[in-house]
């Protein structure tokens, strides 16, 4: 079993959830999102995030606006849509289920 591959799969599975979480808190510029994800070690390479954001935008979970920047060209600021919030709630529910399942499994094995 390839442990690295499994870890990558796990990360990949919840990356979208993490992005929605970050943007739901506050409208964000791509670099903010990347920094937060990197800080929580959710992101290994930056390149992955761009296709992901575009896809989330295409499915109507995210929207963006252009904002002028003091250092350089205008930046894309992402914000969450109504639809995005609904999906986020659903994801949150399944996340809670997952963590409960894991913690109950852990408590059983500890016994």
């Amino acid at each position: 079993m390839n442990i690295e591959n499994t870890q990558a799969q796990m990360r990949k599975g919840i990356l979208e959830y993490c992005i929605l979480l970050i943007i739901a808190q506050q409208d964000a510029y791509v670099q903010d999102i990347i920094n937060k994800l990197k800080a929580s070690k959710m992101l290994v390479v930056e390149g992955t995030i761009y296709p992901l954001l575009t896809r989330l935008k295409n499915t109507g979970l995210l929207a963006y606006r252009w904002e002028e920047s003091t250092q350089g060209p205008p930046r894309k600021y992402y914000n969450i849509t109504e639809n995005g919030r609904k999906v986020l709630q659903e994801l949150e529910a399944s996340w809670n289920e997952l963590t409960e399942a894991i913690s109950s499994l852990k408590s059983h094995t500890n016994l």
Binding site: V44, V45, E46, G47, T48, P51
Partner: peptide
């Protein structure tokens, strides 16, 4: 930083 094409 961005990752190799393979990785991305």
């Amino acid at each position: 930083i961005m990752g190799t094409p393979d990785a991305i």
